[in-house]
Amino acid sequence: MTRAAGDAIVVTGVAQREAWQARVLPPVERLAGGIWSVPVPIPRSPLRYTLSYLIPADDGLVVIDPGWDSDEGWAALESGLRAAGAAPGDVLGVVVTHVHSDHHGLSKRLQETGAWVAMHPAELDALNPSGSPADWLRAHDVPEQEIAALAGTIGQHRLSEPARPDVLLEDGDAVPVKGRTLRTVWTPGHTPGHICLVEPEAGVLLTGDHLLPRISPNIGLQRPGSSPLEAFLESLEQVAAHDELEALPAHEYRFRGIAARARQLRAHHDRRCEEIVATVERLGTPGVWELASQLTWSRPWEEIGPMRVGAVAETMAHVRYLADRGALTWSGDVVTAAPQR
């Protein structure tokens, strides 16, 4: 067990972090409560892999976030199942924290072997997206010369024929397995129906993308009338109540310090809100594209390429949150500073 910088969190997945730093897949590991951690590779992604979890119950195995659908990914999942003494036919059910392809992709193959698939009902809309990506970009002042390159990236998390759910899990629902207590915690923000899972006997919280040890999940405005950042910040408070548990995230490595990590993420978004207000005051009446291009990102705006779609959506989420609180005004076309009172 190694303490992270500032002792804010404690890294418990030491081998996972070493693998992350070495840019290789971490090992398959058996964890508390007989849970298995299985890395499933993501092709051509800086995230590199999804940490899928195998949870044995009295009536079979439950797989959490089986990972990206590829032959390499399927082989990795099968290898993890073999390490746990199982095969795909032993999988009773699949629970996806959300329906992005790096989580939900292999659900279809497991469903075809007889497993049920479960998710939160708010993820159903994402399985059948409507509207044109180009129109979405055009509506937010993206220059025409950028649209052709970026429109295709909006669908990078979408599956052509995703597994439909057999089971819908609301907040507080128990996953339908025998001999284990696995409870749903609805944590919207990254997606409308994102969920975490509490397993109190094993002392763990499976956090999906909601709580990662090193990076913040993308919080983007996708549906009119929603405020995903507000939902995400409220969800952080909800998971912080489980501070006594070990966090099992879907990427990077395991850790303790759930409340501390929630505070870090809250502070990150507070700083981003302050930066956006200051940038709007400097620019006057920017559109969302112009505003996003002037903010601080992990790399310079000119170098982030397809990530600009996520940057625009995340900028919109923060603008919506700030406009709801009177810190900015947003006409839908341009953003302006709030009138001085």
Results as ranks from 00 to 15, higher is better:
T329K: 08
L137S: 03
D173A: 15
G73Y: 01
V175A: 08
T336W: 08
S216M: 10
G67F: 01
Y321A: 01
G208K: 05
R82C: 09
S130N: 08
H318Q: 13
H251A: 14
D324L: 11
H98K: 04
G152E: 00
H268Y: 15
E275Y: 07
A19H: 11
W68C: 05
P165T: 11
V288T: 10
D166Y: 08
E123L: 04
S227K: 04
G6R: 12
T329S: 11
G310V: 03
L124I: 15
R308G: 02
V11H: 00
L47I: 12
H98S: 06
I195S: 00
F255A: 05
E72P: 04
L150H: 00
P121N: 03
P228N: 06
P339W: 09
L77Y: 06
H120S: 05
W74F: 14
G152Y: 01
R254Y: 12
P162A: 04
W68Q: 05
V280G: 04
M119I: 12
L283F: 05
A32S: 13
D69L: 14
E199P: 02
A174S: 12
D166C: 04
S52P: 12
P217L: 11
G305V: 07
W36P: 02
A278L: 04
C273H: 03
P26E: 00
A84W: 13
A126V: 12
G131A: 07
S101I: 04
H194I: 11
